[in-house]
Amino acid sequence: MWAELRDLRDGVDLGTPPRDGSDVTLTIDGVSVTVPAGSSVMLAAARAGHAIPKLCASDTLEPFGSCRVCLVEVEGRKGYPASCTTLVEPGMAVRTESEKLAALRRGVMELYLSDFPAEDIPGGWSEFHETLQRLGVTSHPYGTGENHQASPVDQSNPYFLFDPAKCIVCSRCIRACEEIQGTFALTIDGRGFESKVAAGQDQPFFDSECVSCGACVQTCPTQALVEKSLFEGEYRHAQSIEA
């Protein structure tokens, strides 16, 4: 029982929540692995020691399938399904690495990078940075287009800040607020390019229903939501929202 809570391990992210279920055996890159029914391909791959790169997934949250980084190939199926939302089936054969997959993932990461603060690309240690390093992406081919780099930083909460310039709109913060904390304080405001994470009725975090549990900060893969205590002195952005 309670595998989704009790089978979590420090320092390990299986990508999607562990499940209770009867055994299902499949192969990941030729390695046979047995996981409970209801598990994702992503989880099976992590168990098999072939962790798949991902951004919007976390084993503390239900799968969402938005970041397009965790794509895989499944024998006998067309296309490149997201491994987080694809459930394991008996006898399934999954490939997590191929030239095509590498190219697809690199392309997606370059797009994210094109709207990320350039000075923050080197020297970072967030999940996003680790994924960049793993996929060998250090730059992007795009010119300066429309972006979110001038968005004001929300520094209203005394303990953490939100810098939209680093946000990739993966919704992990929103899902953590709903699924883990149960407060429902965060939403995606706007659509398409305009969509952004908003607290309450698009208020500063401090003024919203946010209860500062830290679940959103904990799960943010890019450190767009980050503890202020990790910085010495002022956070760099000129324009910011105070409480």
Binding site: R6, F160, I180, Q181, C213
Partner: peptide, 23 residues
């Protein structure tokens, strides 16, 4: 101490926290 991170293997919190313990 610069940060308190909720421990995923904590049997009561499974990686969750509140404003008091976390901050």
């Amino acid at each position: 101490i610069v940060r308190m991170i909720p421990w995923k293997e904590g049997k009561a919190n499974h990686g969750h926290s509140c404003i008091k313990g976390r901050f």
